[in-house]
């Protein structure tokens, strides 16, 4: 559905959950009908507005898992239950799957949040999910408890959580892409879904291409408006805005991008190498 009215809505924060030392989940008292992979723009009046991928929209609440990495997200982390923010969206494309498929999810950093949201849908569609979460060390792993809980439900017993940490403090010592490689070597995976650092997603793309597996990749670029006007988030090769034709792009589209895995652009449109 085409959104023509893009004015923000004032939304109350119901609850703030501390996930890791970097990440908090903000439970907002609204449903915007967001689907897994989509994003919303969050406005802190007087400061700025930034896009955030949706960690959950359950029909009554909107969850956003936000890492404190800059002035805006640091300010977010100071907000408490009862405070209000502006919300616009949902914007962008979503993850999709068919009934009964065997899927691999590759999450780096905060990427576990939108993929956890999608895991609910995948499990409800009787898919088997190999959910790989990576982080630098154990205490930075995001949502692993919740993923295990979801996979302990009777309909999801075939699904598994896999963990990788750089320092080996939990799960596989090394990169989560190594775990993915092992899994696609063993199992007949029909699609790889990935959210996280672009270098990680680039490796997943190469693997998918080499193995002839489909993939859905969350391509992230510097977004301003969120609805395809300002042009700041356009990807080279296709020239399309990622806020409209992304963030989630199928493998065949990502393969046509000239910048993917190589560079992105800052808020002035200048190329920045990864």
């Amino acid at each position: 559905m085409k959104i023509v009215n893009t004015l923000p809505r004032a939304v109350t924060i119901k609850e703030v959950r501390v996930e890791t030392e970097q990440v908090k989940t903000f439970v907002l008292d609204i449903s915007v009908g967001a689907k897994p992979g989509q994003f919303v723009n969050v406005w802190i009046p007087g400061l700025d507005e930034k896009p955030f991928s949706v960690a959950m929209d359950n029909g009554s609440e909107l969850h956003l898992a936000i890492a404190a990495v800059g002035p805006f997200s640091n300010k977010m982390h100071e907000l408490k239950a009862g405070d209000r923010v502006g919300v616009r969206g949902p914007f962008g494309t979503r993850f999709t799957c068919k009934e009964g498929e065997h899927l691999a999810f590759l999450a780096g950093g905060y990427g576990a949040a939108p993929l956890y949201f999608f895991a609910h849908e995948a499990v409800a569609k009787a898919c088997t999910v190999e959910f790989i979460v990576g982080a630098r060390r154990k205490d930075l792993l995001l949502f692993t408890d919740r993923i295990e809980k979801l996979f302990s439900t009777s309909s999801a017993l075939r699904s598994s959580l896999h963990v990788a940490t750089n320092d080996g403090s939990a799960g596989h010592k090394g990169f989560n892409t190594e775990v993915l490689e092992e899994i696609v070597g063993k199992e007949k995976i029909s699609c790889i879904y990935t959210v996280g650092p672009e270098i990680m997603m680039f490796k997943a793309m190469k693997l998918a291409q080499a193995k002839g597996i489909d993939a859905q990749i969350s391509v992230e670029r510097y977004m301003k408006c969120g609805f395809g006007i300002c042009g700041n988030c356009c990807v080279d090769g296709l020239g399309v805005p990622t806020c409209i034709e992304g963030p989630v792009m199928p493998l065949k589209k990502v393969l046509k991008l000239r910048d993917f895995g190589s560079y992105h652009r800052d808020k002035l449109g200048k190329k920045i190498a990864f």
Binding site: V4, N5, T6, L7, P8, N41, W43, L47, D48, E49, K50, R88, K224, C225, F227, I229, C230
Partner: peptide, 8 residues
């Protein structure tokens, strides 16, 4: 800074 564009 954002918001930079709004529409109706």
């Amino acid at each position: 800074p954002n918001p930079v564009i709004i529409t109706s």
